[in-house]
Amino acid sequence: MSAAIPLSAQLINLFASVILLLAFAMLAQRRVLPLINLFALQGLTLCLSTLVVAFTTGQAHLYGSAALTLVLKAILLPWILHRLVRKLQVKADVEGLINIPATMIAGIVLVMIAFNVALPISQLSSAISRGTLGIALASVMLAFLMMIIRTKAIPQVVGFLAMENGLFLAATSATYGMPMVVELGIALDVLVGVIILGVFFFQIRDQFDSLDIRHLEKLKER
């Protein structure tokens, strides 16, 4: 039974649970800056979890991805987002389309779905961290939910990045990480994406005097 789980696996499970918890916290967070901080914290947890996997399995390239995660997701991206929030003078409140308890219930349902989808697969895995695949998928889905229910631009982007976090967790947990060249490519894409979005925010604000993307609902099928 459970007694056979080695300490490293316990730690990985713990970090994965924290990531899931942070995903929920982000879903429930009403303000922008704490949201970004939560995202940074998630990146940090991801980095720690990757480090444990790297240390346990002796996969050298995982140290690289851990460092990449730390620099990109825990420091650089939150910093850029903080700057954006300050420069754009975003209002502190985040509005959601549906209230928070309803969101939470939807989140729980998503987590159940994700766990069910992932269960047969994680049983096939021999990786030490295989159980976290379901959590990774759940984080992806929760971030997805966050993108759907948020009406402001920056929370949507945080949701997008959190989705990337979940995917990264999936990569480390199921397979000990993708090949380095792919990981670098993904990191580059994410970074460029955020920079482009930064430019884009300014365009949106100049055009609408607000970052509420409910202004962006003119194009519809009539």
């Binding site: 997805f144 997008f160 989705m163 990337e164 884009f200 365009q203 100049d206």
Partner: peptide, 21 residues
Amino acid sequence: RTPASLEAAWKYFILCGVGIA
């Protein structure tokens, strides 16, 4: 840089971003 084009680009980015994820 028209409102409509910004909206289209935003939708393009978000939807394709979700898809590509």
